[in-house]
């Protein structure tokens, strides 16, 4: 927590975690953590949605693809959703997404779904700290870096072919 955020494996790696918090419960709990001056790791960036049910699996994948080492999704406890049942839809979708992330080689623990009620400011602190520690141990995911690495294999041929001179038409029209 004393090091600024840096990218890179090994010592000094600070995980970058994107969090989607539902307005009524988890975001409010994070506000409460703030009001209570609880201190926790600075690695999380919160994106506010009205309901965890707004979170599309595409968002989770996009966060990883854009460089997140971990994605945290926070919603109301089952039965307490401000919009009655939005969090059940979240749970159903995300249980499948978890399987798919695993099949795509994304380590267990990088994606996390937590139910945090508006009164649980201390749970925000403990979940964030716990997740940062676990993702730190897993190391960087760095998908943008990996994408660039994987795409290197087609660069050489690309340069070769684009370096070839243009072929003009023999007769001008």
């Amino acid at each position: 927590m004393s090091k600024p955020m840096e990218q890179g494996a090994g010592a000094g790696f600070e995980p970058r975690i994107v969090a989607f918090f539902c307005n009524w419960c988890t975001y409010t709990a994070a506000d409460l953590a703030g009001v209570s001056r609880l201190k926790y790791a600075p690695n999380v960036r919160v994106i506010r949605v009205m309901c965890s049910g707004r979170v599309d699996p595409q968002f989770v994948m996009e966060a990883f693809a854009k460089g997140a080492d971990g994605v945290l999704l926070g919603g109301c406890h089952p039965g307490d959703c401000h919009y009655a049942e939005g969090n059940y839809k979240t749970l159903r979708r995300m249980r499948m997404l978890e399987r798919m992330l695993k099949d795509m080689g994304i380590a267990d623990g990088r994606f996390r779904l937590e139910w945090i009620s508006g009164a649980e400011g201390d749970k925000v602190k403990s979940v964030v700290n716990d997740m940062v520690a676990k993702v730190r141990a897993l190391g960087p995911l760095d998908l943008p870096g990996k994408f660039a690495e994987w795409d290197k294999e087609i660069e050489e041929l690309e340069h070769q072919i684009s370096a070839q001179p243009a072929k003009e038409a023999v007769h001008a029209r």
Partner: peptide
């Protein structure tokens, strides 16, 4: 939100400033 979610919950000034910039 850089108060409840940043300045009030982080002690590391550099990290908090970096977070504020990102947000």
């Amino acid at each position: 939100n850089i108060r409840e979610h940043a300045s009030w919950v982080h002690e590391d000034k550099k990290a908090a400033t970096a977070k504020a910039k990102g947000l």
